[in-house]
């Protein structure tokens, strides 16, 4: 299909270009917006692959929630990016060195790429054929049945992260007036109003 190929190239190109712009643009807010564009195009690529569930989840989670928080932080913080980049050249050599070493390793590793003879047997895919089951269902089976242990463990990790954030930052400040809806609702007329008969001319 020409259209599919065309769509793939368009989305892939925009995704890569947006990725480049994320690091290239001077304004951090623009960076985040380009990041969102990149997410979008990745979602589109997922759709082309037939992984519609992943595509939607990518949009809901990354674009709809994570990037919003990013944007919040970037907009609220007054970061001087020029100052941040000052040391950039100074650290460039060592960064480049590490990058080159890692790259060389990768090249070396991929150059010697061979599948071990046992791999085919080991991989024995747990996923059923695409026609039998929708990809939402297949993912559900994997995550909630096959890998339920990992799912629960990940949940615990997030719980601990939440507890940690609260423990390290929450302070109950003194002198803050809080609304207690239960108390407001429970308040009766007798508690707050007193009807006084005032004889005229004598004051209260």
């Amino acid at each position: 299909m020409i259209i599919q190929a065309l769509a793939f190239y368009v989305f892939a190109f925009v995704a890569v270009a947006a990725g480049v712009m994320v690091i290239a643009s001077r304004n951090p807010v623009h960076s985040v917006l380009f990041l969102i564009l990149a997410f979008f195009n990745s979602a589109a690529l997922f759709v082309l692959l037939g992984a519609e569930f992943l595509a939607m989840i990518l949009v809901v989670v990354y674009v709809g929630a994570v990037a919003v928080l990013f944007l919040f932080v970037v907009m609220m913080l007054d970061i001087n990016f020029a100052a941040l980049r000052q040391g950039f050249l100074q650290y460039l050599p060592i960064g480049a060195l590490i990058g080159i070493v890692l790259l060389a390793e990768l090249v070396f590793v991929f150059a010697s790429w061979t599948f071990s003879p046992d791999v085919a047997a080991v991989i024995a895919a747990p996923t059923p054929a695409a026609a039998q089951v929708s990809n939402t269902h297949a993912l559900g089976r994997l995550i909630y049945t096959h890998y339920v242990y990992l799912f629960q463990a990940a949940g615990l990790i997030l719980l601990v992260a939440m507890v940690g954030a609260i423990v390290l930052t929450l302070r109950h400040r003194e002198g803050v007036r809080r609304q207690s809806i239960a108390r407001q609702v429970a308040r009766r007329r007798e508690d707050s109003i007193e009807v006084v008969k005032v004889p005229s001319g004598s004051g209260i």
Partner: peptide
């Protein structure tokens, strides 16, 4: 994966 998740649960609690 189980190795990593266990390790991370441990480490995250310890950081805090």
């Amino acid at each position: 994966i189980a190795l990593y998740l266990g390790l991370e649960l441990q480490s995250l609690s310890l950081y805090v």
